[in-house]
Amino acid sequence: MTDFPRDAILVVLETSASGVLEDAAPGLLGAAAAAGTPVALVLAAPGAGGSAATEAAALGAAQVLIAESADPAALGVPGVDALAAAAERVRPDAILISHSLNGRDLAGRYAVRSRSAVSADAIDVARDEEGVVAHHSVYGGAYNVASTATFGAPVITVRQGSIDARAAAQPEVSETLTVVPSGKPAARIDSFEEVVGSSSRPELRGAAKVVAGGRGLGSQEQFELVGQLADALGAAVGASRAAVDAGYIPQSHQVGQTGVSVSPQLYIALGISGAIQHRAGMQTAKTIVAVNKDGDAPIFEVADFGVVGDVFKVVPQLISALEARKK
């Protein structure tokens, strides 16, 4: 039996169906390293545990427990069973999970089962004399809140893309975790279709750079300008609710209170007025750039660099200037 570090932070990492670790993995391990010694639990697709463990060690996991689901069609429950077994073995000071849909389900079920306290949607994790503390940005970034558990290891979900810290690579120390299934009823995953990105653009959630367009783009065809700038910067494409409602782009690209919340290094808002609901989903971005015809648009209140001008003039010039620099 391996011994686990006394200041272990258990980090749960999911793999995709094709076996690679989720995008949130580097940030989760980075956050864990700042608060203790990262120990990873890899919830892997069958056959993918070994490679995922190697990946986790390279991202900073000092030790890796591998759990390949015996019943991959069961939704959620096998992951909870694995986490319960892992926490029992590792006895961590905190458990970190991505604030993704699956991560939230896992955190919620596990917290109930283990009678643990849960801190949701953290943007940073730290340790003080008392234990591990989660930091949150609430009400669309208007308030900073710190939370912790009354006792025991808190279960903390971490907002995707919010952690910049990265952990140093560790030599791989991994073992397969023995999991006794709880037999709890679970929904079935009847089929799965992997999204084959129609372009090489990064996923909006967790992207380091986001270029977003609003109703100011005027039409679905003209919205492609957003994509062109995104490609020039290697950014993901986002949109305001107005642009989604106008049918310029699918809802999965919506940034805001009711869409995706993003905390990228760079957020460029094109033709977006910046209603409160939109700002709520993006104002924790490190740098915000806005281009809008209307100099009174509220987006300028949060912009680090604002251009009052026509997106159809400014953006093409920006793209060619960026391309000229690359040469």
Binding site: S16, A17, S18, L101, R188, I189, D190, E193, E194, V195
Partner: peptide, 13 residues
């Protein structure tokens, strides 16, 4: 059920 890497069809009793 859309998830990070794709879209699931799920069912539950």
């Amino acid at each position: 059920r859309p998830v990070e890497s794709g879209v699931q069809q799920v069912s539950a009793d």
